[in-house]
């Protein structure tokens, strides 16, 4: 038999679960998570710029959660890119903002420098998510 406070807590857990489901649903509509593989090493500015531009323009999402990998040439056909990547960097941000500042962002990616901007982040570590920006 649950007490009044336990019942209240149970209801709160159920309410939280529903909100979390809505967050996941809404995030799924807003944020596109994708891994982009760069086959050349060292990576070059023009290539990353072209990959990013075409990828952003092809997708209609508002926010992007991109992981950029550069593969070890010896393992071009590896099944597990994560294990063989020479270079991995994360980019999270708003599509419009990334497109507006694409040159600076690509410079940062190419040089492996992290940056926190108004609506985008380039980082070596996984970036938390859309919650940090909105």
């Amino acid at each position: 038999m649950l007490t009044g406070e336990e019942m209240k807590l149970k209801k709160l857990y159920i309410k939280k679960k529903k909100i979390e489901n809505k967050i996941v649903e809404c995030e799924g509509q807003l944020v596109l998570s994708e891994t982009l593989i760069v086959w050349k090493h060292p990576i070059d500015f023009q290539e990353i710029l072209a990959i990013l531009k075409s990828f952003l323009n092809r997708n209609n999402y508002t926010w992007f959660d991109i992981t950029l990998h550069s593969l070890n040439p010896a393992n071009d056909f590896a099944f597990f890119p994560n294990r063989n990547s020479r270079f991995r960097i994360y980019l999270f941000g708003k599509k419009m903002f990334i497109l507006r500042n694409i040159e600076e962002i690509v410079q940062r990616i190419v040089h492996g420098h992290t940056i926190e901007m108004e609506e985008a982040v380039v980082s070596w570590k996984k970036i938390p998510g859309v919650e940090d920006f909105i």
Binding site: E5, K8, L9, L12, Y13, K15, K16, I19, E20, K22, I23, C26, E27, Q29, L30, T62, V130, E131, I134
Partner: peptide, 25 residues
Amino acid sequence: ETIAEIRLRSFFITDDIIQKEIQKL
């Protein structure tokens, strides 16, 4: 902000409020 972003933000705020109530209880 787009409507979807405002909606998402209000979900995050609600989630935070519920979390605080849960912690208190």
